[in-house]
Amino acid sequence: LAALHAEGPLAGLPVTRSDARVLIFNEWEERKKSEPWLRLDMSDKAIFRRYPHLR
């Protein structure tokens, strides 16, 4: 499970980098069924690119 911001401008976004990794992994797991070539990237760089508020 990932903790998400409940309200405000960040509502629905992950609270920590660990939470972001959970979301990225879950999405990758779903997408790899139809796109088996996808690589999993959970590096800090990938997290910041996707969720800049975690910098």
Rank of each mutant, 00 (worst) to 15 (best):
V15M: 13
W37K: 11
E27D: 12
E27C: 07
R31T: 05
W37C: 13
K32C: 10
S18H: 15
R55K: 13
A20T: 00
A46P: 01
V15L: 10
L4S: 06
K45C: 14
V15I: 14
S18F: 14
K45S: 14
L1C: 14
E29G: 08
N26E: 10
H53M: 01
R17W: 12
S18M: 14
S34V: 13
T16S: 12
R50W: 03
K33Y: 09
R50I: 09
L4R: 07
E35D: 11
L38R: 09
R39A: 12
S43E: 03
P36I: 06
L23M: 09
G8S: 05
A3T: 14
V22Y: 10
E7D: 14
L1Y: 14
K45H: 13
Y51C: 00
L1V: 15
V22I: 15
G12F: 05
F48C: 08
I47F: 01
D19C: 06
L38W: 08
A11E: 10
K32Y: 09
G12I: 03
P14G: 01
S34Q: 14
T16A: 07
E7I: 10
L54R: 00
E30L: 13
E27V: 05
N26K: 15
L54I: 03
A46H: 10
P52V: 03
H5R: 03
A20Q: 00
A2Y: 10
T16M: 05
L38S: 08
A6E: 13
L54H: 00
P52A: 04
A6K: 15
A11K: 15
A46V: 10
S43W: 02
K45Y: 12
R21S: 06
L13H: 04
E29P: 02
K33L: 12
E29T: 15
A6T: 14
K33E: 10
A3V: 15
F25Y: 15
R50C: 07
S18K: 15
H5T: 05
E30W: 12
E30T: 11
R39I: 15
R31L: 09
A6F: 11
F25G: 02
S34G: 11
I47A: 01
M42K: 03
R39D: 09
G8C: 06
R49F: 12
I47C: 02
P14A: 01
S43I: 02
E27I: 07
L10M: 10
E35L: 08
A3N: 15
L54P: 00
A2S: 07
V22S: 09
R39S: 11
R50N: 07
I47T: 02
H53L: 01
R50L: 11
P9H: 09
K45G: 11
D44Q: 06
E30R: 14
E7P: 08
R50S: 06
R49M: 14
A2T: 07
Y51R: 00
K32Q: 09
P14E: 00
H5F: 15
Y51I: 00
K33C: 09
R49H: 13
S34H: 13
D19R: 02
N26M: 14
E30Y: 11
D19F: 04
D19M: 07
P36C: 07
P36Y: 06
R17I: 15
K33A: 10
G12R: 06
R17Q: 10
D44N: 13
V15T: 05
W37A: 08
S34D: 14
V22G: 03
A11H: 08
K32I: 14
L38I: 11
K45A: 15
R39H: 12
P14Y: 01
